[in-house]
Design a protein around this nucleic acid. Structure first.
Length: 656
DNA sequence: GTAGGGTTAG
């Protein structure tokens, strides 16, 4: 055995064929079945399908295929290598099958998404007379498979069978049953199992908390404070019973410290996150999870800090990781993207490949796309698209959806449509929503409406985001009748509760077309309390159509709701400036000053020769500023000469 | 041979 452990300890320093040769040379007189078992273990350890196939051939040559342990290892290996049919052949050729072997194949079916085969095998183990009776392992594997497939109906039947067999009370089986219920969104069932378990461990608590998180996510828009309080009650109870958090507990809880969620106080969430980080460091949890351990928790921490606008703290976690896999790199890149630090994200995307030799996966490409489009324009999106094609990922749903969005935001509705039509084979609500918003963005409201109707006919039920997309498309293109029809259908036929965004689209739509009274009527009958976006839309429309009474009404409501938003004052100031009422402009500016409000200037940017230059209005900071303004003057002259629209000339004069 | 946590898209 010493020889074997030494060979195994050689680990990845040898290629599997070298190891095989070594094995034969040092252990020629060992029982061949033991050598073969060791070879199979090596094949799994080194992820070598070739070695697995060789072992199978050797087993057949030596007549060892009926050896129970060898057969079990062969089945396990074939399933690991995504060769379930070969595993099945080994299984079928066995004259005697023990429960260990049956459970291995059952687990392998699960790993290879063979749902019906797993159900059939389970059935034979429960009701048949040929196979051995299902044991505790059988049940826990089965619950995992049913959880993976979201098959709670079958889950209940299997649980019933387990009760009859007296096995569900086992801790691991109970945990896997709880997990199945949790993943299927049946928290109450999970809690019931938890309550009835005679012996619990940390994993039981973790299963409960994970299930609870899932329920909480589903009701995020509802009464989440009730759920949040109960969750922390569970956590306290767990500690009071003397259970210590493990890495699973911490990572689950970290996912709740998410500053994006509006229902909770963000700083409070980040405090929880920092406490958990301290816990990890204090208890050495980051080292307790094998080689990959610190990466796993590291990802959760990076994500937590990024979502709480503390991406630089996340970066410190990242820099201290001993091993950085694609998850860690992607989490960090994503953190930068979500915090608007696109250059750093792009830099890391290159570093990941050139410094750490870690290839991006589908998620990395989806994560980096917004950075490409923001910094480099269309070309960046095309590069990632090319990357995806080379990696044969271009038909993946999430990537297609991200590409549709990126292309349409970068000005190429043509490319977006091509991805939607030809590459996005399986379309979901997000695919439709992205392309519909794309058409809206490009002023092609009519086409957006056609696509929306087609989506409904295809059996995809609209939800809030896509309705907002199509309504804003109608609004931009002045398609009032379509807008009203879609709004009413969404509310009455599809049971969508009107949101602030949907309502402001409607107000904007009526307002832009000059139907200001209709817009006001809509506001008065809205099912939710009108917010700033509603009054802002009415204000702009009233200003555009010269209705000072309506404008005043909207403006007062706006200032009442948002007395400290500088944009509101700027909008008013600009409006009076356009009609050259300078004394009113001065008055508004004074109010702003008195209230200590300042408007952050917006900036523009341009990509030239792979470098991005950003600039503010009247910016003179560039070293070639003089030359740039000379060129701008020339361009404006050329434009004036070729385009005689009085409004345009006026705008150019204002700009000058 | 068994349970649980990680990065993504409107």
């Amino acid at each position: 055995m010493i020889i074997f452990s030494r060979i195994s300890a050689l680990g990845n320093h040898f290629r599997s064929t070298q190891k095989t040769a070594l094995l034969h040379s040092v252990a020629p007189n060992i029982d061949p079945s033991i050598s073969l078992l060791k070879l199979l273990e090596l094949s799994i350890e080194t992820r070598s399908l070739k070695l697995c196939l060789q072992s199978h051939a050797i087993a057949q040559r030596l007549g060892l295929t009926q050896h129970p342990l060898i057969a079990q290892k062969l089945i396990f290996s074939f399933c690991q290598f995504k060769r379930p049919f070969e595993a099945q052949l080994v299984f079928d050729s066995l004259l005697v099958k023990n429960a260990h072997i049956c459970n291995t194949l059952l687990s392998g079916y699960g790993k290879n998404q063979f749902f019906f085969e797993s159900l059939e095998l389970f059935r034979e183990m429960c009701y048949g007379s040929i196979l051995p009776l299902a044991d505790d392992f059988t049940f826990s594997v089965m619950f995992k498979i049913l959880g993976d497939f979201g098959e709670v109906f079958h889950g209940r039947m299997v649980q019933g069978r387990g009760v009859k067999n007296g096995l569900v009370l086992d801790t691991v089986v109970g945990n896997s049953l709880m997990s199945m219920y949790g993943r299927c969104g049946c928290f109450d069932d999970s809690l019931k199992v938890f309550d009835e378990m005679p012996l619990r461990n940390v994993s039981s608590w973790n299963a409960l908390i994970s299930g609870y998180v899932k329920v909480k996510v589903n009701v995020e828009s509802g009464n989440s404070s009730f759920y949040r309080d109960r969750l922390w009650d569970f956590v306290n109870e767990m500690q009071n019973e003397g259970f210590k958090f493990d890495a699973y507990t911490v990572s689950t809880l970290l996912s709740l410290c998410d500053g994006d969620s509006k229902s909770d106080d963000c700083s409070n969430k980040c405090d929880h996150g920092r406490e958990l980080h301290s816990y990890v460091v204090k208890h050495g949890l980051d080292l307790s999870f094998g080689l990959d351990g610190d990466v796993h928790l590291g990802c959760c921490l990076i994500d937590m800090y990024s979502k709480n606008s503390k991406v630089h703290v996340g970066r410190r976690v990242f820099d201290r990781l001993k091993h950085r896999n694609v998850f860690a790199w992607t989490a960090m890149i994503n953190g930068y993207v979500n915090n608007g630090e696109f250059d750093e994200a792009l830099f890391l995307f290159r570093e990941m490949q050139w410094m750490d030799r870690v290839g991006p996966n589908k998620v990395s490409l989806v994560a980096i796309l917004p950075a490409c489009s923001s910094v480099a324009g269309l070309i960046g999106g095309k590069q990632i698209h090319g990357f995806a094609i080379r990696m044969e990922l271009n038909h993946e749903l999430s990537l297609c959806n991200a590409l549709i969005d990126t292309y349409s935001k970068c000005g190429s509705l043509n490319y977006a449509t091509r991805v939607f039509e030809y590459e996005c084979i399986y379309k979901d609500a997000i695919s439709w929503s992205s392309i519909i918003s794309g058409y809206g963005l490009h002023g092609q409201g009519h086409h957006a409406v056609i696509l929306f109707d087609k989506m409904c006919l295809d059996g995809i039920n609209p939800e809030t985001t896509v309705v907002v997309g199509v309504l804003s498309a109608c609004c931009r293109s002045g398609l009032i009748n379509d807008g009203i029809r879609i709004y009413e259908s969404a509310v009455t036929n599809y049971g969508i509760k009107p949101t602030m965004e949907m309502c402001s689209c409607m107000v904007d739509m009526f307002g832009r077309s000059g139907q200001l009274n209709r817009a006001l009527g809509f506001i008065e009958n809205m099912p939710i309390k009108p917010g700033p976006s509603i009054w802002g839309a009415l204000f702009c429309a009233a200003a555009q159509h010269g209705n000072s009474e309506m404008q005043d009404l909207a403006y007062k409501s706006l200032i009442r709701l948002e007395p400290d938003n500088s944009s509101n004052y700027i909008a008013l100031s600009n409006l009076y400036a356009a009609s050259k009422k300078w004394e009113v402009v001065a008055e508004v500016r004074k109010v702003m000053r008195d209230r200590g409000l300042r408007k952050l200037p917006g900036c523009s940017w341009i990509s030239l020769n792979s470098a991005t230059h950003s600039f503010f209005v009247a910016d003179k900071s560039h070293p070639d500023s003089d030359l740039i303004y000379v060129m701008l003057d020339e361009l404006v002259s050329v434009m004036k000469l070729t385009y005689y629209n009085p409004d345009f000339v006026y705008m150019m004069e204002v700009l000058e």
